[in-house]
Write a protein that binds this DNA or RNA. Structure first.
Lengths: 336, 336
DNA sequence: AAAAAATTTGGAAGCGTTACCAATTATATA
DNA sequence: TATATAATTGGTAACGCTTCCAAATTTTTT
């Protein structure tokens, strides 16, 4: 690999001039610039980023930490993030931060430290797998962080999240408005905060409408296809009388619909189904799924932009408000 | 940030000793190791990776280049890759290599060069968005590459791909074996090589069974949900008489099933549907989808391992053979 | 044409690490 | 105990770059 010295020699100039041409901020005469650029091309010279980072203390890289990479949206979201980074000539270092497969309680922090020392100017913490405690600890020595789909009061301005409570409430209210009084749930994952929040919101909407939801109507899910299927089978076996089913996400809603249909129930005539997320898949279930739109991409974009601003002194405009939107399709029957 | 010098001072040893402790390969006395480790902890010292890379010329990072990040499997596959990398203390630098949004014909190569100069020891090229020509060009000066789900004869050993032709053939033969003679298609994306290959294989199986597939039975798709829906609507409007539908992937199969069902057709009693990929979603369509399993994860794992071996002189065992497997569920009716 | 000011230039210092070598210390052998 | 051998140690050079400063060159002003 050619170095800056090779370029300088070939161009017949000093290394300072080459550096100036590369970085294009100090003044260089046209004559020199031409010579240098020619030499760069001839040698196929690429500046060594390690050397650059060593002296500039900038890595031009943003780390993404999150165990949620396995979800459905996430590759799309990752694409959004990467695209924004590329636009600003930055890179994207990814890690799942496997916090699961070990008894080491510091694994989360360790893997973050790993990411930092590998060379990130900032980190996006994606999802709620990292504890508030850990974040507070990390933030002290590495403040360039942003939380995506997670909320920690203390760092509210660094958090880009969706009001899952409100969304859950709106979903419940919508079902009630359509005349449903007996509603079952296959919830999201209660291990995750947003899973709990949307369920809380839903329950509060029921309460405010004087509807009680017996505990046997509630199946704790985990956002998977399989739980949608299993959940429906369990509900069916319990022989309960419900007219609507609220699912913790669109995937479980999709398999719930398929399972209901497969068991002779018509959706929405016999049972209405309501989803959550507004996945790719939502318009293509049969019937098309009514759901809550969660603007993951918008949130991700805002999070990256915020981080770019803080890491590289940019002035990108950053959205901080992500409204709840209900998408009405055909999976909920109006009983009134 | 503390440096190795700070650690050496605090521990009262030379920087050489600190380096030896960190890297743990040369011999250090227990006494020294203890002192150094204590100092490291006290100062919360993390070795600067840029400095390390600068001298060692290793980055401990593998780049992933591919515009396929938006697909369905891909986040799961990415997770597999990342997990294997973490196991070997390596990192994962991702880029979509946005080759689309510009008139610059060298954008692909540019973005790869970017990845290289940012500091990758090797690169995984994911998908077929990069041309054979570009690969040959890149391989010359950066040989540590691997192709995932792509095949270039010249670099066959560096390619980890699936026999889509054979899989397409087997799918077609399976439908014929079940008594189907009139088969429609919503193909994969003909822009992608694997999309073309699986269709070729399918057509050849028809030919070998003396079945002709009229061109109006074939809808060119693009792996999307929407094309599954649109494709079925088009076929229905054409009023064709087909007993089975072969879809280019499970997503389009899923929405095809939903659309057929929504239009009063029973799957598989009226029309059988066969998918491709064996997605998460496949077992949860209604009826569960019969399909071809594409072992993306196995392929990805093998590709990473191969790259780890070449980049870091490891001896991981690498699979190179990925058999075609037909997954029989309930979406194909036996007409015989 | 000379002096002053502005522009451009070359190259040394320093970033934090590893690799190496010579020097020191500890251990084994005679 | 003296010597040979092995283990451990400290510190310098080198990695390739940017930043800086003083020197050289060009341009402007007088």
């Amino acid at each position: 690999m050619a170095t800056i010295i090779d370029v300088a020699k070939l161009a017949g100039v000093g290394i300072g001039s080459v550096s100036r041409v590369i970085n294009g901020k100090d003044s260089v005469s046209d004559k020199t610039r031409l010579k240098v650029n020619k030499a760069i091309k001839t040698l196929n010279y690429k500046p060594n980023q390690s050397a650059r980072s060593l002296v500039s203390k900038k890595f031009n890289t943003i780390g993404i930490w999150g165990t949620e990479l396995a979800g459905t949206f996430n590759s799309q979201t990752l694409r959004v993030i990467d695209h924004e980074l590329i636009t600003h000539q930055k890179h994207c270092l990814v890690t799942n931060g496997d916090i699961s497969n070990s008894e080491n309680p510091n694994l989360a922090i360790d893997s973050v430290n790993d990411l930092i020392s590998k060379g990130c100017d900032g980190i996006i913490f994606w999802g709620t797998d990292v504890t508030h405690f850990d974040i507070a600890y990390i933030e002290k020595y590495f403040p360039n962080i942003v939380l995506l789909n997670n909320r920690i009061e203390k760092f509210d301005h660094k958090c880009f999240y969706f009001n899952h409570y409100k969304a859950g409430y709106i979903a419940g209210q919508y079902l009630v408005d359509n005349g449903h009084k007996s509603i079952a749930c296959i919830t999201g994952d209660f291990q995750t905060e947003d899973g709990r929040k949307r369920h809380e919101g839903f329950l509060d909407s029921m309460k405010d409408n004087n509807i009680t939801v017996p505990s046997e109507f509630i199946i704790e899910g985990d956002y998977s296809f399989i739980k949608g299927q299993e959940g429906v089978m369990t509900l069916l076996k319990r022989n309960l009388d419900f007219t609507a089913l609220f699912c913790g996400n669109d995937q479980s809603a999709m398999s719930a619909i398929a399972t209901l249909t497969g068991n002779g129930f018509n959706v929405p005539d016999d049972i209405s189904v309501f989803g959550y997320d507004d996945n790719d898949i939502a318009p293509f279930t049969s019937p098309p799924l009514s759901t809550i739109r969660v603007p993951f991409d918008d949130m991700a974009l805002a999070a990256v932009k915020y981080l770019l601003n803080t890491c590289y002194d940019l002035q990108l405009s950053v959205e901080h408000n992500f409204p709840v939107e209900l998408i009405e399709r055909k999976s909920v029957r109006n009983l009134t």
